[in-house]
Computed example of a mutant assay.
Amino acid sequence: MYRILLALSCLCVAACNPANATAELAASEKAVAAFHASANAGKFDDIYFGSADEMQNSADIVEFEEFLGVVQRKLGNAGKSSQQGWRVNYGNGATLIVLNMQTKYAKGDAVETFTFKSSSKGPMLVGYNIQSQALIMN
């Protein structure tokens, strides 16, 4: 019994390899920069069709484009974005990376939360949340 518990413990530690988390985090930070670049260029459909099925199932393309269009109209282009926190969750055969970003837009600041799913193609957007007083007030 002791050997089985030891083997399972080693397997759990190997699955939560900090090196993997670091690589996942770096790839997700690049994906945030790509998201902002595409949004600034008005390529909302590129973001949508490059996202994970979970994201596409939560909204159709028209709703998604309208939402990002409102963000761009009210806040302008995204500028400097700095990470405020992150976490990596391993479970059910999937790796989820959540990044909390502070982003300066042309017309105000925003706190954004990006959720990515690890895939063989790289991080795929699963969820996006933006909070900004300027988004409401403008």
Rank of each mutant, 00 (worst) to 15 (best):
A31Y: 13
A34E: 11
V98H: 00
T22L: 12
G76D: 08
A31C: 12
C16N: 15
M137L: 07
L99F: 05
V32P: 04
K74H: 02
A106W: 03
Y90D: 10
E54A: 09
A21H: 04
T95R: 12
A37D: 12
G42D: 01
I47T: 07
K80H: 05
L96V: 01
V71C: 07
G93E: 06
S82H: 03
Q131D: 15
N89F: 00
N17F: 08
T113Q: 09
A106S: 00
F44Q: 08
R73H: 14
L75F: 09
S81Q: 01
T22S: 11
Q102V: 06
W86Y: 15
I130E: 11
N77P: 08
N138E: 01
N92V: 03
C12P: 00
A39L: 09
I47Y: 04
A94E: 13
I97N: 02
A52I: 07
A134R: 00
Q133N: 09
V13G: 00
L75E: 02
I47L: 12
S58Q: 09
L96G: 00
N17G: 06
S28Y: 11
L6R: 11
K104P: 00
N138Y: 04
E65A: 10
T103H: 00
V32M: 06
K30H: 11
L135D: 10
R73V: 13
S51M: 07
A59P: 03
E65D: 08
K74D: 02
P123D: 04
A34P: 09
A37K: 07
V111M: 12
A26K: 15
S9M: 13
A59C: 10
A33Q: 13
F114Q: 03
N129H: 10
R3I: 01
E66W: 01
C16E: 14
I47H: 09
M137G: 02
M137H: 10
C12N: 08
V70F: 05
L6H: 08
N57R: 07
L99K: 02
A41K: 10
E24R: 13
N77W: 01
C12Q: 07
F44A: 10
P123G: 04
S118I: 02
S132I: 05
I97V: 13
F64L: 13
W86C: 06
V70W: 04
G93C: 02
K107Y: 10
A34G: 10
M124P: 06
A7H: 05
S119M: 09
Y128S: 03
G79N: 09
L6A: 15
Q72E: 12
Q131L: 15
K30M: 11
M101D: 09
L75R: 00
F116P: 11
G69E: 07
A37F: 10
M1E: 08
T103V: 14
N57Y: 03
M124F: 00
G85C: 01
G42C: 05
S82G: 04
A59R: 13
A27R: 11
E29Y: 08
V98P: 03
T115E: 03
V32E: 07
G42W: 06
Q102M: 06
V111D: 14
L75C: 01
Y2N: 07
G79Q: 07
G42E: 04
F114G: 00
G91F: 05
L5G: 12
K30A: 15
N89G: 04
V98Q: 10
L135S: 05
A110P: 05
K121W: 01
S119H: 12
W86D: 11
